[in-house]
Amino acid sequence: MTMPATEHHTLAKHWDIFCTVVDNYGDIGVTWRLAKQLAAEYQITVHLWVDDLHSFSHILPSLDPALRRQSFSGVNIFQWNNPLDIDYIAGQVVIEAFACELPEQVKSVIDKLHKQPQSTVPHWLNLEYLSAEDWVEGCHGLPSTQANGVKKWFYFPGFSDKTGGLICEQQLFVERDNWQANPNNKMALFSQLGLSGIEPDDTVISVFSYETAALNALVKQWQHATQAMHVLIPKGRSLHSLTEFLPCTVSELIPGQQIKLGQLILHILPMTDQTGFDRLLWSCDFNIVRGEDSFLRAQWAAKPFIWHIYPQEDDYHLIKLQAFMRIYCDNLAAQIAATWAEVNLAFNQGDANAVVNHWQQLNSVILPLQQHAINWPNNALNDADLASRLVQFVKNS
């Protein structure tokens, strides 16, 4: 039973983050990283409310989906059932991630607190999806007064200093540079993942995409490479585009399994936690990623990448893609920018012929593209990450 508001004269010190799991790992990936960073770097007690602990456990293998309450990395993880079957005590901040809509019990507590004399209510934030579009700057930080008179603030991550910033742990780039400085690290990781037959100088590509004919076309081309290539791919949506190459159904594949196709070897990856995924991206020569969390981690990996953005009606996702490409390519030479942008666009349009043609052209610009990928993370961060901007935003509002 929810505690009555009269017992909440002062707010508890914790922050609440509510997340509904969408597309298995995207939304929970972002909120889990944010919760861990707030706990580790700002000593904030975070209560992370999640509606699908089973999917969450794929990126946090030690999580028990059967437990209603558990703690990892300094974060308290609660099962979010509807209605809530865990008492809700209001904290200083409540974040509804990606317009997930707070439970009625939580809104009721906020409403009762608001009606008290000398009322104190949580800072109520809606954490929005990351976008590079121009309009984000104008909408970030705007309040929306709810029917009960309480203000809800819209918090937009973004790439400029007028937005909410990008999720990035304080020591991430140092850890990445140390990892990449020693080739033995990636070879040890491949061995740990059960991958064999990869030599230090072989080309290695990671794939975490949605279904697309473009991936099928690239695999057909990669079979005829001039030297050994390895594609590392987990069981899931990407493989549904490659069924013609598989010896069995996708569900029957096992981690560590290899499918040899000419010069190309497909390696089936086990699922990994977020630290392991970062290290995987750091260890590959090129990364194909999807969604929001993986898209950002590919940028922080300082390696060339393709972003497979989530398809939307009327191809609106392509507008989002082009907005990001304009920012990413801003200080790139025209030929390099055009080549990288064209392969990204072709992949997202599922254009098999175009993606193959543009991929072939990548070889001529790969060295400056790699250097740009190394320079980009510091430029994109704009001196402040999302967590630090978020903490300051709460103080200011």
Rank of each mutant, 00 (worst) to 15 (best):
P255I: 00
Y210L: 12
F72A: 08
K220I: 08
I44Q: 15
K112F: 12
L125F: 15
G91L: 08
L189F: 10
Q263Y: 02
Q335M: 05
Q258E: 08
L193N: 13
S364R: 04
Q37L: 04
G194Y: 09
V204D: 00
I86R: 06
N24E: 06
H58M: 08
N396L: 05
W49H: 04
Y328K: 12
T20R: 13
C19S: 14
I28E: 03
W222I: 00
S397F: 08
C329L: 10
Q221P: 12
A352G: 04
D201Y: 05
A384H: 12
Y42H: 11
V150M: 08
K260C: 01
L142W: 02
R389W: 14
E169M: 09
G194R: 08
W179G: 06
S108T: 15
S62V: 11
I167A: 05
L369T: 06
V174K: 03
T203Y: 00
I309W: 04
P117Q: 14
P122S: 11
I28S: 10
A301S: 09
E292D: 03
S206G: 08
N382I: 03
N184P: 05
K220W: 00
Q257P: 03
V391W: 10
F156T: 00
L345I: 15
W340I: 10
R389H: 15
R290T: 05
A337I: 05
T275C: 06
Q274P: 11
P368E: 12
I28Y: 02
L318E: 03
L130M: 01
A346G: 11
T6D: 07
T212K: 05
S191C: 06
A380Y: 02
K303S: 01
G194W: 10
A354D: 09
A373M: 13
H9L: 06
S241L: 02
N216Q: 07
R33Y: 12
G141E: 00
S108Y: 09
I288W: 02
G164V: 09
L67D: 11
Q360R: 15
N344K: 05
N24L: 01
L367F: 06
L318N: 02
W124Y: 15
V21S: 06
A213C: 07
A39P: 15
T272I: 15
S55H: 06
S397W: 12
H58R: 11
E211A: 13
A334G: 13
Q258D: 05
G262I: 06
G91R: 09
F190A: 02
Q312I: 14
S108N: 14
A337M: 09
R237K: 13
L362D: 01
